[in-house]
Structure formats: C-alpha cells, structure tokens
Design a protein around this nucleic acid. Structure first.
Lengths: 138, 138
DNA sequence: TCAACTCCTTTCACATTTCAAGTAAAAACG
DNA sequence: CGTTTTTACTTGAAATGTGAAAGGAGTTGA
C-alpha cells in the first residue's frame, strides 16, 4: 500500500508541511509533479488527514498542562461531555479508555486559579484524579 | 502581543497549514503579503513552532493506542529513557507528571502481540499500569 | 510640525503549481 | 506469447502565488 518513498514523503511533511512540492520532490528524488501526485493520493487514501501547525501553548498564555483521570459516577456520561464542550478552549484530548478510569482528559489552562475553578465545576459531574505535566521528554 | 487577526490566522493555519498566503489573507481581510508578514512574525516569536501533518495512525497499521502509567522503581530513570529511545517508532508522548505515577507514556502499536512484547521488556525497567484508548471524544 | 515607526498596499520579477500530453515499464488478459 | 491496460513518471506551457522594494496612512513623541 505505502512504499518507501511514501514513508519518506510522510516524514518530510511531518517535519515541515509547508515545503514546496518541488523541494519535497528533490528530497525523495522525484519531480515536483510526481511528489504532488503522491501526496494527493495519500490525502485521498486518508493517510494524511490534514495539515496543521504546532502551537506553543505557553506563549499563548496556557502555562498549566493537566492530565485528568475521570471516573464517572453514573451511566449517563452526557452531562460530563456537555461540560467539556462548554470549555473546549481548554481541552486538548478526551480519550475513552479501558483500565482504572473511564476517560483521560488532557487540558491546557492559563493558571492554577482557572484550573481550580475548572476542577470545582468538573466535580459536579464526575470524580477525578489530577496529574500535572512537568515536562515532555524524548 | 497577539491581536484578533493573529488569532484568526492561527485558527486558519491550524485547520489547513498549506493554505496559500493569498487565500489566508482573504480569510482575515488582508492582502497575501500582509498575511505573510504576520505569519513570519508569529514564527519569529515562536508562537508557531512548526508546520506538520495529521497522520491516520490506523491506516499506517498502528491499531493499538495505549496510555501507560509508569512507576519508576529506583532513582535512576536513564535505563527507562534509553529503552524508550530504542522504541521511538511506537512512542507518541512521554510526559513527566506529578500525581500518582512518574511518567505518562502514550504509545501506538501495530498489535496486541507487539504491545505484549513491549510491556514485557518495559517491566524490566519500571512498573506500569495500562490503559487502552477506545475512542477519542469531543 | 516634523521625524520615526508600524502596518498595510501596490507593483513586478521570479518561483511554483497545475494541467495536458507523452513515454516507459509493469500488470492483466486473450 | 503478443497485445492492451494501467501505473508512475517526465516534460512543457499557462495560470497562479511569492517576495522584495517603494510608498501611503495613521500613530507616537520630541
């Protein structure tokens, strides 16, 4: 399905998705047009889901990075999910998981005060355990 | 530091980072050149850290998405970190966290068999608790 | 009022993308 | 085994986008 050239294209685009097709072609020993055709195919196949940017959340004022283990109290999760939707500027990910907790919620927040308020509201809907990210490693 | 136009630019680039500067300009009511200048400034400030792609990991054969809570057995974490480096094709994130566990390790793996082997090796270095991601919600 | 600064626009030479046409090799088929 | 089809690529030309320079409008401060 994907050959070595496709892998290298994905690799280069992961590093810099705004590279020109001409330059990308040079990196993988194709003409710009050939590279462009392959990229279009990867998009069609859904292997490339989209093009985006890496944002420095701290420079945007989000200095607290929290990972919250959610334990739902009852079978209806909708109130929790609605609560999240109302605070989606803070939400990075919400994973439904197997294991001890029901959800793993990843958040970015501007301060401990806002986190405090967020958790207070959150506790109306679900139980939780809090982890604060100190650093990203590797 | 960032005005409303900058925010909208970040928003548009998050949705599609391969948009032309001309088109981006139209979306935020600027000429292409003005948009281009603002984007360059956002890059210089480090607010935009880079341009990348969203990859469908499942279509690449990574069907298992695991989040592993790591409990280090002793004070020297280096063996664990070296182990990760050797398996970096499986690693999405490794966060040092406060809370119950020491690290939160996010992995993508091609199968339960590979996960099994990975965990077996992992357990030589650290203790862990496993969560499997069922779905991403919101 | 004037100078300096910021932010934007216009213009134009140059680079890139896109489209159509053509080639070569591999795969499919009788 | 020969023929057709398909796939992956290249080439060239037209359309489109980019980057640099020059300049205008609004703001700040002496």
């Amino acid at each position: 399905m994907l050959d070595q050239t496709d892998i290298r294209i994905m690799d280069e685009l992961s590093k810099n998705s705004r590279i020109t097709m001409k330059e990308l072609g040079e990196k993988v020993h194709l003409t710009g047009q050939a590279a462009s055709t392959r990229v279009a195919k990867l998009e069609d196949q859904g292997v490339i889901e989209g093009y985006t940017i890496k944002v420095n959340q701290e420079k945007l004022g989000y200095v607290v990075h929290a990972i919250i283990h959610i334990f739902t109290k009852n079978t209806n999760h909708q109130p929790y999910l609605s609560f999240l939707k109302k605070h989606d500027r803070y939400i990075l990910n919400n994973y439904k998981v197997s294991g001890e907790s029901c959800y793993l919620l990843e958040c970015k927040l501007p301060s401990n005060e806002v986190l405090d308020e967020f958790l207070t509201n959150l506790s109306h809907y679900v139980g939780y355990k809090l982890s604060i990210v100190i650093n990203r490693i590797g």
